Computed example of a mutant assay.
Amino acid sequence: MPHRLLNPQTFAAIKDLRLVAKAVVDGFLLGQNQSIRRGAGIEFAQYRSYQPGDDLRQLDWKMFARSDRYYIRESEVDSSVAVRFVVDASGSMAHQDGDLSKLDYARFLVAALAYLATQQGDAVGLFILQENQLVQLAPQQGSQHMQRFFHQLSHVKPNGQFPAADRLAPVFARKRQREITVLVTDMYEQTTEISDTLRKIGAREKDTLLFHLMGRNELEFNYQGQLQFQDLETGQTLQLNPDTQREAYLQHLQTWLQALETETRKKQIHYERFHLHEPLDKALRAFLLSRARQ
């Protein structure tokens, strides 16, 4: 059951993002703690394993980092951090693999992480990036702020190209000493606009996570027959036979992916790649590890 709640296909038809987020987070934490037993080195006078319904503000991040398990700390919560979610909503995020688009997956991913962060007591902000507009909600706490957060995330539609880095000053503005930035994108760029943005974010903030979304059909290029492909941002079309191009495509793709991951990690940015049918536990785990370092 918990693993099913992490599968984006399970909740694709649910419109209430907050409900989706709560189900994902509860399923994830429950699944991680089903096999917890008492053992040496755990101070049970102060800690107990997470159970559904527990106040997530008492979840102990540092205990997670040490033990890879989720424990409730029956003491005061540490001071909060600000978590800035930066979401690519350019036209390429409309790419679909089955019933899900990249932007659908990004919605579920960001909603779950934001819910987890706010329940812990952190402030969350949302920056949705498109060619002709920038949706920005500065990191805050509170129920009204979260209503706006989920509303904006629910209603955004992919459109246009990724904006140039010089138009994104609000994304780079720093207001707190303790911040985490999460950039969710498919890294589809016309020149180097996303790479430039990532470089600026990485230079500004030591705790930056890049969640790179791709369709499994992109990763495997499992198309058949003579097809016409269209660039979702420029409208340009290309006719080709995938069977004759698959080997060369996959070689170029692996070269690009390896270079991207290497360059990202050189900048000390945490890199994770996801395909659109992949459960969300990897993203939640990466976020928790980053949060534990604060």
Rank of each mutant, 00 (worst) to 15 (best):
G202C: 12
H270S: 09
Q224V: 15
L219D: 03
H277W: 06
F229D: 05
K62W: 15
N33R: 12
E220L: 14
L17E: 04
D26M: 10
Q133S: 14
V87S: 02
H151I: 04
L17I: 07
K22H: 11
R273Q: 15
G27Y: 03
G98E: 10
V171S: 08
R107L: 07
I42K: 08
H212G: 09
N217I: 06
A169R: 14
L100F: 12
K22Y: 06
E247L: 12
N159W: 06
H3D: 11
Q251D: 11
Y115V: 00
D104T: 09
A65L: 07
L280D: 04
V182G: 01
A248S: 08
Y50G: 01
G160Y: 05
R167V: 02
P170A: 08
Q147W: 00
L238K: 15
S79Y: 02
G125E: 09
Q152I: 00
T185G: 10
Q254Y: 08
K157Y: 07
L134A: 13
L126S: 06
S195A: 14
T197F: 05
Q147K: 05
H252E: 14
L250T: 03
V184W: 10
V25T: 01
K15W: 07
Q46F: 15
S35V: 09
Y271R: 09
A112Q: 02
L232T: 01
F11T: 04
R4Y: 07
D16T: 06
V171L: 14
P170N: 04
H270A: 12
H275F: 14
M63Y: 00
K282N: 11
K22P: 00
K102C: 11
L116V: 00
Q144Y: 01
P170K: 09
I194G: 02
R273S: 10
F11E: 01
D281M: 01
T181M: 05
R48H: 06
A89C: 11
T191W: 02
T237R: 09
L253W: 00
T118A: 05
T197L: 09
T208Y: 00
D60V: 05
N159T: 13
L129K: 08
R293Q: 15
S90M: 04
E233F: 02
T181N: 13
V81M: 13
G160C: 11
P158K: 03
L227S: 08
L232P: 03
I128S: 05
E43A: 11
R246W: 11
H277T: 13
V20A: 05
A106H: 03
R38G: 10
R37Y: 07
S49Y: 14
Q251K: 07
Y271M: 03
K22N: 06
P52G: 04
L213Y: 06
F108M: 14
M1A: 13
F127R: 10
L238A: 02
H155T: 12
Q152F: 15
H270Y: 11
A248M: 07
A40D: 08
G235C: 08
R178F: 05
L284D: 00
K266P: 07
R18S: 01
G31M: 10
A165K: 10
A283Q: 03
A13T: 13
R18V: 01
